[in-house]
């Protein structure tokens, strides 16, 4: 129940977040000046916070979506299994998000 709402909420967040990607791509296509501006905004602490949230939202929505394929194959529908899948989804999404940021952002740079 709650996870259905989270799937919807992360879907909306991703819907809005896609404009961040397109803004960055458009700035790069436009020229050096706009790109520097976008980089400065995205590189600020607020920008990084939003991008961290966006990463989690994308990963959580992906795992929630993959869960639908499991259900489509008539697995994991029983009481107990659904709750287990929900918790697995939350925990895995947090771990994967931290992994991506640890490997590529905090250690990589």
């Amino acid at each position: 129940m709650a996870m259905s709402i989270v799937h919807r909420a992360t879907g909306i967040a991703n819907y809005a977040g896609s404009s961040l990607l397109v803004l960055w791509l458009a700035a790069a296509a436009w020229g050096a000046e706009p790109l520097n501006l976008v980089n400065a905004i995205y590189g600020s602490w607020l920008g990084q916070l939003v991008l961290f949230g966006y990463t989690w939202s994308l990963i959580h929505h992906m795992l929630g979506g993959l869960r639908h394929y499991v259900w489509d194959l008539i697995y994991g529908l029983e009481a107990g299994q659904r709750e287990a899948l929900s918790w697995a989804n939350v925990i895995a999404s947090v771990i994967l998000t931290l992994l991506v940021w640890t490997i590529f952002v905090w250690v990589g740079n």
Binding site: L35, N36, G43, I59, M62, G65, V100, F104
Partner: peptide, 29 residues
């Protein structure tokens, strides 16, 4: 369902591209 599968691939591309290029200049992009 079909676009969802494609989106898993997209997320792989996205993470690669963004983490490789975050904060880089135009030449690098």
């Amino acid at each position: 369902r079909l676009s969802g599968i494609s989106n898993v691939l997209f997320l792989g591309f996205l993470i690669f591209i963004v983490t490789r290029l975050a904060g880089e200049d135009r030449a690098e992009m």
